[in-house]
Computed example of a mutant assay.
Amino acid sequence: MRVTEKGQVTIPKEIRDRFNIVPGTEVDFVASKGGALLIRVDTRDDDSSIRDFDDWAERVRGTFDTGGMSTDEFMIFLRGERDDVDSG
């Protein structure tokens, strides 16, 4: 997808249909480390995409087991020891 000289982009039809984005729908871009996310500003609580996510989040709640590691220990497990900071 290409940005026009006016800074506009076309939201693909599949995305518009899936999230019921029609003319007049308020959307916004949210910056993230990987880029930008398009979100509906006027999303209602009965929106199926929110229900789907909430249902998924509820199903996986409490299923992640760090084996008793603290957050710091788990980060070291994931990333390895940092050599750019003093450990003492």
Rank of each mutant, 00 (worst) to 15 (best):
G7W: 02
Q8M: 13
T10D: 08
T10H: 09
I11K: 04
P12I: 05
P12S: 09
K13H: 11
K13C: 05
K13L: 14
I15C: 02
R16H: 01
R16I: 01
D17N: 09
R18E: 01
F19G: 01
N20M: 06
N20Q: 11
N20G: 10
I21T: 01
I21W: 02
I21S: 02
I21D: 01
I21R: 02
V22D: 11
V22C: 06
V22I: 13
V22A: 10
P23A: 11
P23S: 11
G24F: 00
G24M: 00
T25S: 06
E26V: 07
E26N: 07
F29I: 04
V30P: 01
V30L: 04
A31W: 01
A31H: 02
K33T: 11
G34P: 04
G34C: 02
G35F: 02
G35T: 04
G35L: 02
A36K: 05
L37W: 03
L38S: 08
I39N: 05
R40A: 03
R40K: 07
R40I: 00
R40W: 00
V41W: 07
V41S: 09
V41T: 11
V41A: 13
D42A: 00
T43R: 11
T43Y: 08
T43C: 12
T43Q: 14
R44D: 08
R44I: 06
D45A: 15
D45C: 10
D46S: 09
D46H: 05
D47I: 00
S48K: 06
S49N: 14
S49P: 04
S49A: 12
S49Q: 11
I50L: 14
R51M: 10
R51G: 09
D52Y: 09
D52I: 08
D52F: 07
D52P: 03
F53L: 08
F53G: 04
F53I: 04
D54T: 10
D55V: 06
D55Q: 15
W56G: 14
W56Y: 15
A57S: 13
A57E: 12
E58L: 03
E58M: 03
R59A: 07
R59N: 08
V60D: 01
R61Y: 10
R61I: 03
G62D: 05
F64D: 09
D65R: 11
D65Q: 08
D65H: 10
D65T: 07
T66P: 13
G67N: 05
G68S: 04
G68P: 06
G68T: 06
S70L: 08
S70W: 10
S70R: 13
T71Q: 07
E73K: 01
F74T: 03
M75I: 09
M75N: 13
I76P: 01
I76T: 12
I76S: 03
I76A: 03
F77I: 03
F77H: 15
F77Q: 12
L78V: 13
L78C: 15
